[in-house]
Amino acid sequence: MTEIPTAPSETPAINRRRSPFGDAAIRVFGRLWRRRYVHLTALGYIVLLVLFWREFLSIPSGQALSNWSPPNETHPFGVNALGQDMLKLSLAGGAKSMTVALVGAALGVGAGILASWLVVISGRRIIGFWSLTRISHWGTFTPAFSVLVLIAVGLRPGFWLLAVLLAGVIFIATVARIARWFEDLELRGDTIAGTVLGFTSIQVVNRNHLPVVIRRGIALSCSLVPGLVLGETALSFIGLGLVDGSWGKLIADGREVVFEAPWLLIYPGLVASLSLFALASLGWMARRSMNGELPPRVF
């Protein structure tokens, strides 16, 4: 006589529900792994270690300055050597970096839209679009950051000059894409319908195409801002960007005294990282929305 199998006392593994947090963490890590973010981060740390291992190991004999103080209830981010609150400095630095990036992105994309629009209404579309695409292609091959550094060394830019420099980089990088938008819109049904209805080609461009391009341009600017903030921070970090009080300058100053007063490095860096993460997510969503997709679920 065969034994009747009894139900297992433990729930089978397949029916066991994993913790939603653990599940989400595994999924996020899996995505980061598959898209090589983990590899890239590890590589970055290895490069940093190779370059600065002496500095990590040696403890500098920095002179204690009387004015700084670690984080406390009055100053949650601490106070620097000049007696300034680091929280206020970090926020002010962020505002400066983000403003210059936003102005740069808006100017660059705006110049791209203006150039493409002038090409379209001038009627010389083929040669005009070809030229804009060439500018973009040649520009893409140029190492933009190195050129920016060279120009910044020569000019020591202030706010507006830096914004214009960043706008130039953005113009070169995006003008081909914007020209392509105008080109694609020409093939749309409402272009043909508008033409047969009796509008001139300039009227069709201004009424049907330009609003679409401007909306897309705004979304594109949003997605470009985090990269520009990072670029501006990097320039300031090496002492070539906005020298007074931007994120890069704060982080560079904090690096000098990282062992004596770590809050001078950690908190501006933390604010910069979180802000860049938020800006990148916003830009990412804006770009997804621009492509007609639903904004992604962050969690």
């Binding site: 409402d190 508008g194 047969v196 009424r207 609003p211």
Partner: peptide, 13 residues
Amino acid sequence: FLEPDPKAQFNPF
């Protein structure tokens, strides 16, 4: 002149 996708022929704005 009518094209295949009638909705696309309107000015969307």
